[in-house]
Design a protein around this nucleic acid. Structure first.
Lengths: 189, 189
DNA sequence: AATCACTATGTACGAACGTACGCATGATGT
DNA sequence: ACATCATGCGTACGTTCGTACATAGTGATT
């Protein structure tokens, strides 16, 4: 996402590091995914990015600022994929396929940390700035869906996507791609 | 849920307090709802229940134990309502109505703190005991739904319920009961 | 009434935290 | 070449936390 970090040994001697702020935001997302928002501290992020603690207060006004920027990056990334897939679809059938692909390939891919999304929801419940991030993201998803479906359907299928993703992620017995396809097609065809 | 607590002044003089453990678990749920799991500390719970700090270590082996018991109580409470509504339904149509009532009246009622459920999901991602609580709850919901619907439908509608509740709770423009009814009926009828 | 097991309480300690701040350093513009 | 200033760095302070523990009060049993 950003430029590679200087190696640990290099950092001990060299100091120049443009994009450090960017790397810190990415590091914050890693820490959130691994330890949760509760376990995300200045020190953990600094360790993950291999920068000294003092760097945190220089680049960010406080922990809130880091969290906001990190979650904004996360939401924007997912929303962009959402947009792209649905914009590429030309017909309603293609749009249905796009939704299925979104859930099975993008949202539930092993590399994608779904837990980040749930962490965002929880944090948003008590942080107005994060609530705004969440709502902007939801609005963007719905707008993308409305390229192909009427507003009511868009809203409903948006909720369905949410439920399918969440339940699949939380279950020891996750839904198969075929089951997800079945659920979405049942709703949209 | 439990017996009323002795008043603050009474506590200062008297000490006998059976059901204190129960009250502490309820207090923990209140604190989780207000401050989140991250802001839930021994001291906050003790303050909410108006007991001294030392009482926490006596009644619970650690913070994990309190959280587990609190979330177990939360999940059991919702699952019980779920069971009851679906057991009371005699026909498929009544079952559909029961599901609608569950979402609009029970899960989304102003008194019910939906944020507790999301907090549980996040905590469960990193706590095996809480993961077990979540999965037992999901299984119980699905079993209840299977009294009236085939397993595939049960699973899908369970996910739909999740998405509808979550989106309604997070949105500034929450879905109306009519919209929720529309979404569920579209799926089940 | 005496005893005892259980429950309740206040306090203390070490660890981890957010944040502030003074100093060092390297890039930049002249 | 040199001055300037944004950036990088180490450290320290005050706060809050989980937890332990010694002591004290209480209800039950005899």
């Amino acid at each position: 996402m950003s430029e590679p970090a200087p190696t640990a040994t290099a950092r001990r001697t060299r100091r120049h590091d443009p994009h450090r702020r960017d790397r810190l935001i990415d590091a914050a997302l890693q820490v959130i995914a691994h330890r949760g928002v509760a376990g995300t501290t200045h020190r953990e992020i600094a360790r993950a990015a291999d920068v000294p603690l003092g760097s945190m207060t220089y680049h960010f006004a406080g922990l809130d600022e880091i969290l906001t920027e990190a979650f904004t990056r996360h939401a924007d990334g997912i929303a962009r994929v959402f947009d792209e897939r649905l914009t590429a679809a030309r017909t309603r059938d293609e749009a249905v396929e796009a939704v299925i692909t979104l859930v099975t390939d993008d949202l539930l891919s092993p590399g994608h940390d779904l837990v980040l999304t749930v962490e965002l929801y929880v944090a948003a419940a008590r942080n107005p700035r994060l609530k705004a991030v969440t709502q902007a993201w939801m609005q963007r998803s719905r707008d993308a869906l409305e390229r192909h479906f009427d507003p009511t359907t868009a809203r409903e299928v948006d909720a369905l996507i949410e439920g399918l993703t969440l339940h699949s992620a939380l279950s020891t017995d996750p839904m198969t791609p075929a089951q997800i396809r079945h659920a979405i097609e049942r709703y949209l065809r």
